[in-house]
């Protein structure tokens, strides 16, 4: 049973929703993933981004310096809580202790967005519940869709918040899958009221690993399945090159690639001024470099969503 009608909209969510539907370039919200080495930078630099996103689990402690920094950051920036361990697609239930910590953090930070991945993380080995330590892919079947809807409903009800669910990069595939990930996410959102976090780089990684590597085609095919009002956030990231024949790993260790920027243009054209985040997790660059990537996203959004925005939307929808 859907909980979408039970969910309250926070102050930030309401603001975001009205901006989202306006599709004007000046309304785009651009942020960066905030990691520990940049704590001092964000607290001492001029405000050049609209929001930050943090990994929820990094702030699960009851107190301490990291949480204090996040609370200081929250005074200036809206914060998006991006979880990586919930494992909404897990057959095993998400442990209550995990959800309790997430709820406590949610109440402390009052995020304007809350997101997770369409993956599984919890399972049993030798009879014991364990966490996989990674975002593991799920088979895209109706049974798994039903299971994930149950988990999303449970979490949304418990937190009293709408979730945004991210497509994932994968390194193995299941023979059992018969839905595309885009079809799976679309159905998930329709049945739960959740929204989609569209990670362009994850589409690119899966394209290179499993679909022949025509990234532009993979992105267009993917986004054309998603309803126009279903995408609540976009993620951009880069990953390291690998030798020919090797699987690409989504390591978030590089600047956003040209292919992903092109995919971003296509996504903006279809979905409008969706809040956009640049992620960088390994080999972190200087803060100014990261901000430069965010500025590039803003420039592209301004270019795509300018005076020709409406014409472009029509064009891509007819492809």
């Amino acid at each position: 049973m859907s909980v979408k009608n039970l969910l309250h909209s926070s102050k930030h969510s309401s603001k975001h929703s009205s901006k989202h539907s306006s599709k004007h370039s000046e309304d785009i919200l651009v942020g960066v993933g905030l990691r520990h080495p940049h704590f001092t930078d964000i607290l001492t630099s001029a405000k050049e981004i609209d929001f930050v996103e943090v990994h929820s689990e990094n702030f699960f402690g009851q107190g301490g310096a990291a949480l204090s920094v996040l609370q200081q950051v929250r005074e200036t920036y809206p914060v998006s809580l991006h979880s990586t361990s919930m494992g909404l697609g897990s057959f095993a239930d998400i442990p209550a202790h995990y959800l309790a910590r997430l709820k406590r953090l949610t109440q402390t930070i009052d995020p304007f967005l809350m997101s997770e991945h369409a993956c599984f993380t919890w399972g049993h080995l030798q009879g014991q519940l364990m966490h996989s330590g990674d975002l593991l892919p799920i088979a895209h079947t109706h049974n798994n869709l039903k299971r994930m809807c149950e988990q999303v409903d449970r979490v949304q009800t418990y937190l009293g918040r709408e979730l945004i669910i991210e497509n994932v990069s994968a390194y193995v595939q299941f023979d059992e899958s018969y839905l595309s990930e885009a079809e799976f996410l679309t159905a998930l959102c329709q049945q739960t009221g959740a929204k989609i976090l569209l990670d362009i780089n994850n589409i690119a990684v899966n394209s290179l690993n499993f679909e022949g590597g025509d990234i532009e085609k993979s992105v267009v095919d993917y986004i054309n399945v998603l309803p126009i009002d279903s995408v609540a956030q976009i993620h951009l990231a880069g990953c390291s090159d690998v030798p020919h024949g090797q699987l690409v790993v989504d390591d978030h260790a590089c600047p956003v690639s040209d292919d992903v920027w092109q995919g971003y243009r296509q996504a903006l054209t279809r979905f409008g001024a969706v809040p956009t985040l640049v992620e960088w997790d390994s080999d972190l660059p200087a803060w100014s470099t990261l901000i430069g990537e965010a500025q590039k996203a803003r420039d592209i959004a301004n270019a795509v969503l300018g005076v020709n925005a409406r014409a472009s939307v029509m064009e891509i929808n007819h492809e």
Binding site: F91, G123, L125, S132, L136, I138, N143, V172, E176
Partner: peptide, 17 residues
């Protein structure tokens, strides 16, 4: 109804671990 998913997820976990 859930048994097939449990098997496929358990299979992947077991192989990785």
């Amino acid at each position: 109804e859930h048994k097939p998913q449990r098997t496929e997820q358990q299979r992947l976990l077991a192989v990785i671990w």
